[in-house]
Design a protein around this nucleic acid. Structure first.
Length: 743
DNA sequence: CTAGCTGCTGTTTTT
DNA sequence: CAGCAGCTAG
């Protein structure tokens, strides 16, 4: 039995799977069988009687990964792994807080704010506190709050040294008060609250420590400081923590991931020996060599070198395009060739650094009638009509949820406008109550008999009729839904809220109606799978927040896969196209300035390269439409970090740029003189006409080094040029002062 | 109160 | 280019 479970594992994988009861760190390279090791370890622990499902906690970063883990385990083991806690950090924390809501100081039906909800909560509070959004942009306050929560810091523990951080800390504190009043928690709060729950409640902590003798963590390099502290708290002296990760694939530092958790883990958990999984079962040799060469440029790595038993395979294919448009055309041509050679479309991925880049690719694919699927769009539970329906449901579960109330109090339109809302807001602020309570009070429902003597009762005018109707609507829904099964509740809400009628009357409402129907279906399957849950409505609402749903329909079809490098992590394809390999785009200009940012970009590139099994295309465009204007750039420095002998340079079919001169940007004006280019630039080169400077010209600046002129404006003493520097980014320079010289 | 217009500002992403 | 916030006209 055990043999079949373990057969086919290589020695390192086998060692990891069958480690004795101790904490361990598995450094698992891309394509080295990481998920297999993790799931086989769990199956082995259970099958060999070393642990019962009840004793296991496994944490992943995405719901998808959690689902996959569960599927694999159930396919390996005949038993039902119920009792196991498998999920994301947020999902597990939610489970903990629901079970112990009283100890955590939360109302039983607390609701979860997703990031969009959180942003609107922040904006709402800013209005209420009269905070100048010029001085404190909502985003900045949001980052401040989330950053501190991710670091485990409450407002009361922040030591503000300057005025700005003092005011942000005050805001943070007010924000938390608002959330508590409304009975809602944001994503970061789920973690912090459950951390505090475990930290302050020794008997609870001991209970879980005794229970979870094995804790397994996937994608450990992506854990935040708070998540790591949470793990440390949950792991008792006798718990074994099995952490699997790859420091080279850490690409989420920008949202709080802390790679140094890996080193801390080695120290804190006294890890004697790190097991390295370095055999790659995915890619051909040339692809791996390229990835290894690139990532070796990063400093402070834990150290690891992927190898494969497969042959070298094809070289990488490099293409220089004159424009993004032409780059897309090249990709389409190659795809058509691949298709002729029998490569399935769904086994081909087009990956890029940022979502905006998909547009030009989509356009070309559409014209070529090639089916494709873009990942990363709006997801099911994030759709407007779904959010509206969910908001009504949230009000049934918890009427104090001001976010939910504001979303639907006038949707569909029922005559409650800005003025009424302002009054309501003032009343709520004055009484320190939720908008709902203020509305109930104003409309007379909150204090029956207190409607006054009729005449002269201030604030009971026309406006409040609308409020009263709304309060009545929600109250009516709540009583009508009591005791109903979840799908019927949702059906009832869609009907009585007026959402159905509204979208029926909307010419473009057909899709939205269909999605609302789909919401009822989603609820039906949720009820079927959830089994025996106490508060089905709240569970479903939490599910909707924590798992935003599949990106888009049409997953099964044979279509090209378009996605950002971030969303490509964990996937593999026969052929991968990485496009837009330009300085400023990949590496992104906002990250390239500081070394840490550049290294993260390089890891991102490493992730992109290692997605390919057999064929890898790298391409860049010399000009690209960005934010509505044409932008000129150099090829990405990452291309220079891949050994030349691994790459085959492809020539443009119709154009004759300097073949074999891909690295010529600094020395010559190269292909900036292409006919197509000068036509596009004709209007822009006018301002500098007659001067010694021209667009496309290579220049040297004493401080910023080499660059190329990409734009120009003004004349005489006002003349300014925009220069894209090789190392220093894109800058506007006044010709009168900048000591530019021609290169 | 709502609809339509103008002006501004833009990474990456999961939960 | 495009999505959103804020303003103005009906």
């Amino acid at each position: 039995m055990s043999d079949s479970l373990l057969s086919g594992l290589n020695p390192e994988q086998l060692e990891a799977v069958t480690l004795p009861h101790q904490s361990a760190l598995i450094l698992a390279g891309a394509g080295s069988g990481k998920t297999r090791v993790l799931t086989t370890r769990i199956a082995w622990l259970i099958q060999s009687g070393r642990a019962r499902p009840l004793n296991l906690l496994a944490v992943t970063f995405t719901n998808k990964a959690a689902r996959e883990m569960l599927t694999r385990i159930t396919s390996m083991l005949p038993i039902n792994p119920r009792g196991m806690w498998i999920g994301t950090f947020h999902g597990l924390c939610n489970r903990l807080l629901r079970a112990h809501y009283r100890d955590a100081g939360l109302p039983q039906s607390f609701q979860i704010l997703d990031s969009a909800d959180q942003l609107s909560a922040v904006k709402r509070l800013m209005k209420r506190l009269n905070i100048d959004d010029e001085k404190f942009p909502a985003r900045q306050l949001l980052y401040f709050i989330n950053g501190n929560k991710d670091a485990g810091l409450r407002a009361s523990r922040i030591e503000a040294s300057d005025d700005i951080s003092r005011r942000m800390t005050e805001f943070y504190s007010a924000y938390d008060e608002q959330c508590n009043r409304e009975g809602v928690v944001d994503f970061a709060e789920l973690l912090l609250r459950s951390y505090e729950l475990l930290a302050s409640n020794a008997s609870l902590r001991d209970h879980y420590r005794n229970r979870f003798s094995h804790i397994l963590v996937d994608e450990f390099q992506d854990t935040s400081s708070l998540q790591y502290q949470w793990l440390k708290l949950l792991a008792g002296r006798d718990s074994a923590v099995f952490a699997v990760g790859d420091d080279d694939q850490s690409i989420y530092a920008f949202r709080g991931a802390n790679v140094s958790n890996m080193q801390s883990f080695e120290r804190d958990f006294a890890i004697g020996k790190v097991i390295k999984l370095e055999q790659n079962y995915r890619s051909h040799g040339a692809i791996l060599d390229a990835a290894n060469a690139l990532i070796s440029q990063n400093r402070g790595r834990l150290g690891k070198n992927l190898w494969t038993a497969e042959g070298r395979g094809e070289p990488l294919r490099l293409y220089q395009a004159a424009s993004d448009f032409e780059e897309a055309r090249f990709i389409v041509d190659e795809i058509q060739n691949l298709r002729r050679d029998g490569v399935g479309l769904s086994d081909i991925a087009l990956v890029y650094r940022s979502n905006a880049q998909s547009r030009v690719l989509e356009h070309a694919l559409f014209n070529a009638a090639l089916p494709y699927r873009v990942y990363g769009g709006l997801r099911f539970f994030e759709r407007q009509e779904i959010k509206h329906a969910l908001a009504y449901l949230r009000l049934i579960a918890n009427p104090d949820d001001d976010n939910a109330l504001l979303r639907v109090i006038n949707f569909p339109p029922r005559g409650i406008g800005a003025r009424s809302l302002e009054q309501l807001n003032d009343a709520a602020a004055a009484g320190k109550v939720s908008l709902w309570q203020a509305a109930a009070r104003e409309s007379g429902i909150g204090n029956i008999g207190g409607r006054g003597s009729g005449i002269g009762s201030r604030g009971c005018g026309k406006v409040n009729k609308g409020l009263a109707a709304f309060v009545g609507l929600i109250e009516g829904m709540r009583s009508a839904c009591a005791g109903l099964p979840l799908p019927e509740i949702i059906d009832h809400v869609i009907e009585t809220s007026g959402l159905k009628t509204h979208y029926q009357n909307d010419r473009e409402g057909a899709d939205r109606l269909e999605n609302l129907g789909e919401l009822v279906n989603a609820a039906t399957s949720f009820v079927r799978e959830a089994g025996d849950v106490e508060d089905m409505l709240s569970s479903f609402l939490a599910h909707a927040s924590l798992e935003a749903g599949e990106h888009q329909a049409g997953a099964g079809a044979d279509a090209l896969q378009l996605m950002t490098v971030h969303s490509a992590k964990g996937l593999e394809f026969h052929t991968v196209f990485i496009s837009g390999l330009e300085e400023g785009l990949f590496p992104h200009e906002n990250s390239a300035l500081e070394p840490a940012g550049l290294e993260e970009e390089r890891r991102l590139m490493y992730v992109a390269l290692t997605r390919a099994r057999r064929r890898l295309y790298l391409s860049f465009a010399q000009s690209r439409m960005l934010h509505g204007q044409t932008r000129y750039s150099y090829e990405s420095r990452f291309l220079r970090e891949i050994p030349e002998e691994l790459m085959q340079k492809l020539l443009a079919p119709a154009l004759s740029f300097n073949s074999g001169r891909f690295r010529s940007g600094r020395e010559t004006s190269g292909s900036f003189a292409l006919p197509g280019q000068s036509r596009m630039r004709a209007a822009l080169s006018q301002p500098t006409a007659g001067s010694q400077w021209n667009i496309g010209q290579n220049v040297v600046h004493p401080k910023f080094g080499a660059g190329v002129i990409v734009n120009a404006e003004g004349r005489g003493s006002d003349a300014r040029v925009q220069v894209s520097f090789y190392d220093a980014g894109v800058k506007w320079l006044a010709l009168e002062y900048a000591r530019l010289s021609a290169a």
